[in-house]
């Protein structure tokens, strides 16, 4: 079923696509390798799930993913041998605006976060914050960030309830869009990679169950919404794909990972 997708005509182009979280790393690495004569294209269509779907369809060579390849993915594509390579880790933060954080919402329990994202909190006062209405941005389906949040709130196998029907709820796509909409909406909250709010004056990731998303907490696994970042290939990486993956795992590649605010493989304690 994957063979019908046409295969590759031009073997000289390495095609990478998927998660917008991994994208900054892949884009930088691609630029370096392009300088060494490798043709690489990087795309972010459909997020992590889009990348895996395109890999399965033979449309790309490496899928970027901010979630592990699920059993359902493997079941849906039995002819494929998904090989994920961990290249680092990231934490998903429950990100609020500075006004909310300074108003007293510095930490949330899992129950509090669940009520928040289920649309059952109308005002930040209910969570000990300022008198400000809550506005929830959730990620669109297929985004790795959303799956990490769901896994935290409802357990790895739990089913997330359907999106809330409140008036103060909207959908966002990639990390850049999430950050843009958070910054322009007072009282808003969204799940977002903490790397995208590092150094931001307007947005803060709150502590979860009292644990702040520090590097140490993420590496040790104490912070509950840490997630590994993957490059996924069909079978072990070969040829140009191997060159790409190897570069990301190399010293300069890991520096790129760190430069975008993610944890390196070393910090996580090796592969």
């Amino acid at each position: 079923m994957s063979g019908c997708a046409g295969g590759r005509g031009d073997a000289s182009v390495l095609r990478v696509s998927g998660s917008t979280t991994v994208n900054p790393v892949a884009a930088d690495v691609a630029e370096v390798l392009r300088g060494e004569g490798l043709s690489v294209t990087v795309d972010t269509q459909g997020g992590s799930a889009g990348g895996i779907a395109q890999l399965a369809a033979g449309e790309i060579d490496i899928a970027m993913s901010s979630k592990p390849v699920g059993e359902d993915d493997r079941a849906a594509h039995p002819g494929l041998d998904f090989v994920p390579t961990r290249i680092g880790a990231d934490a998903v933060g429950v990100v609020v605006t500075r006004e909310v954080f300074d108003g007293g919402v510095t930490s949330l329990s899992r129950e509090q976060a669940a009520t928040l994202f289920e649309g059952r909190v109308a005002n930040w006062r209910e969570l000990g914050g300022p008198d400000l209405e809550v506005f929830v941005y959730d990620k669109e389906p297929g985004r790795g960030t959303r799956e990490v949040l769901d896994a935290y709130l409802y357990g790895p196998d739990g089913d997330a309830p359907p999106p809330p029907q409140t008036d103060r709820f909207a959908i966002v796509g990639g990390n850049e869009e999430t950050r843009t909409k958070l910054q322009s909406t007072p009282g808003s909250v969204a799940p977002l990679s903490t790397a995208f709010v590092a150094g931001s004056a307007d947005l803060v990731a709150v502590a979860l169950d009292g644990v702040e998303p520090t590097n140490g907490a993420i590496a040790s696994g104490r912070y509950p919404m840490a997630r590994p970042l993957f490059l996924v290939t069909d079978g072990a990486p070969r040829g140009d794909a191997a060159r790409f993956v190897d570069y990301v795992l190399s010293e300069p590649g890991q520096q790129i990972v760190a430069s975008h605010g993610y944890l390196t493989v070393d910090q996580l304690g090796g592969t």
């Binding site: 046409g6 590759r8 696509s17 294209t41 269509q45």
Partner: peptide
């Protein structure tokens, strides 16, 4: 174009060929 012709980055200035030539 998002679906058919462009990628986020790495497309060559002048495409070569037709297949996988964003």
């Amino acid at each position: 174009l998002l679906f058919t012709a462009t990628v986020f980055s790495g497309a060559p200035v002048i495409p070569h060929g037709v297949v996988d030539a964003p």
